[in-house]
Design a protein around this nucleic acid. Structure first.
Lengths: 235, 235
DNA sequence: CGGCCAGTTGAGTGTGGTCAATCGTTGTGG
DNA sequence: CCACAACGATTGACCACACTCAACTGGCCG
């Protein structure tokens, strides 16, 4: 799946750092662990900023993206609770990070966390697991961007969100989209018009329903899966 | 950069495992470490195979790719010496791996290596560094696949190879391509015809020279960077 | 020599991009 | 309360870039 989040069964980084009495513990071992609140559409950091902090998404959704000199944008991932932002060994952030909804982040000192990782094998293992999951998601997305048609991209995207809901125990047929059509387009390598047209097409085929533009109801999961993998029989 | 290889300054995994008297030591700590030889165009493993072994590229180039039911292919990375193949926590390989040239791989037991990683912080750190580099490369490639035109993709690809040469102390203007036009197309999300046409176009513009189809000489690095329109100053 | 394969080149097509108009919702101020 | 602006989303008309199909070249090897 390409939605960037900790796989459900993994312990969140915060729990590893805090030890057994996790979640509400004082994070004395690493300099910080304090919570920061963001409104929607606020930047957490920009590419090139000094990489002083690493964030764990606690609540909300964050959009990580790259941008080219002429303004073309590529969304790298949508980060849901459990994801880490800003982890790596560069001395500045490699991407931009912007909240899509009101968001709570847990903030760590980058240097302290990375030093701690050299001392705590469980933390190091947890970070490694997280990176493996992220890499796997990024590689799946390479296939989507490089080889799938627009309808396949849209269907794959909706199925990813559905799977994400399923892992959280939420309704896999009822999707709340915190991102705009523009975000989706920049994630899938499409324009907003193409995203919109394909949403409309799926609705006219009876595969999905769209009450508000931010709510997608999957009416025919089988058809959606057919479209995602093969894209035969349209028009 | 998107060419998948250990960043030059990192210690290869084999050195970590073997300890200080690296490279030629008996790899008693992990079950294996033996060398395996491959000819060109041989598969190392297929997607779905039991993930029993992890490989380190010692010599040669390996192409890692995904394939869809209808045959569409996406090349994930070209793995040069220093890269790891098959690392992850899934119980089967997630991709296919095929040698492009005669290749030597160092072979480890996946379970033994991953167990060892829980005991040896230096190994765990090394693996984490490697994964960070791989993730960064994959994310760069997302931008290329999602947002760049065909000429930009080709130019970026050649610049990546040039940068790789530079890191190895080889001539950054003289590129030996171990992969076919089809491999390049499947890496960049293009057809072989589009790859070929853009190579021809670069040659007719005097940006590159092509003696054999597998040798590219960069005549005008500045133009190539302009065409790539890449604001990449990585490393 | 002939077959095979990778690569190149050409002609025509179609998917998805561009440009532009419109719609719908939300929020603000008169 | 309505008028209006702002913004996201939708739809339409048109176009271009990259794909498809096809022919051909050149190198390699039996």
């Amino acid at each position: 799946m390409t939605v960037s989040a900790h796989a459900g069964q993994m312990a969140p980084i915060s729990a590893i750092i805090a030890g057994d009495n996790a979640l509400n513990a004082p994070f004395s071992t690493v300099s910080d662990g304090t919570l920061r609140q963001f409104n929607a559409k606020q930047h957490v950091f920009f590419e090139g900023d000094d990489r002083d902090s690493i964030y764990e998404v606690v609540e909300g959704v964050v959009c990580v993206y790259s941008i080219m000199a002429d303004g073309r944008r590529q969304v790298i991932s949508f980060c849901y609770p459990g994801s880490l932002l800003g982890f790596g060994y560069a001395d500045s952030y490699l991407h931009n990070a912007e909240t899509l909804s009101p968001t709570t982040l847990r903030c760590y000192s980058a240097s302290a966390l990375e030093t701690l990782a050299t001392e705590r094998p469980d933390l190091s293992q947890s970070l490694l697991s997280f990176m493996i999951a992220e890499l796997s998601a990024a590689r799946d997305q390479l296939l989507t961007l490089g080889r799938k048609s627009a309808p396949e991209k849209i269907a794959s995207f909706l199925l990813d969100l559905s799977q994400h809901n399923r892992e959280l125990g939420e309704d896999p047929a009822m999707l709340q989209l915190p991102m705009t059509r523009s975000d989706i387009g920049d994630y899938l390598g499409l324009t907003i018009e193409t995203v919109s047209r394909n949403f409309t097409k799926l609705r006219s085929q009876g595969v999905i329903d769209l009450h508000q533009s931010s709510t997608v109801i999957i009416l025919d999961m089988d058809s959606l899966e057919d479209i995602a993998s093969c894209d035969e029989g349209n028009f």
